[in-house]
Amino acid sequence: MNKRFLKVAAFSVAIIAAYTLFSSLYVPPMKPEEPPSLEAVHAVGVEGLISLGEKVFKGKGACALCHNAAGRAPLLDNIMEAANTRIASIDYHGSAKTAEEYIRESLASPSAYVVPGYGMAGDELTSPMPDVTTGAIGLSAQEVDSVIAYLQRLSGVDVTVTGEAGGIDVSGAIEATTDSEGAR
């Protein structure tokens, strides 16, 4: 074991240590979202449904990934009013008659109406949003109901959805802020 070898080894370990410390100390310790769990939520009445809808919106539904202030997708604070305007637009290709139907339709067929400026690059008529009722997101019918209820509350209108949320599968609805490190 000569001196030169030790110098090279120490140099290499120092580089690895520098990267490790940078990743551990400089980078904020953000905890990734918890994996969806099959947990029964006994939501009671409208408030329970809205609460579940908020969890789905920010968790499993992945809605908040794009519908946020960064502007990747339109904000949904006032979606109920906007929905009525959009249904009346000549660019609307769907079959919804009410704002609630419009949101339900948008969750499964996002291209029924594409807000100007938010289409795919080079194809303004196609939405980059996936069908959230299938594939990786795969919201259940009850979860769709809860999201609509949450958006109705967000828009300040009466909640018209009457889905019963008791005992449903809320896979992924657990908030990302849950501290899971201790369990690990």
């Binding site: 940078f22 980078v27 953000m30 990934l65 960064a70 980059p128 949003m129």
Partner: peptide, 22 residues
Amino acid sequence: SQQMGITLMGGVFAWLFIIQAV
């Protein structure tokens, strides 16, 4: 998958690309 892409670049892994840049 738009969702996967955003998770990669705009989600919790965004900081990983700062490390990559370094």
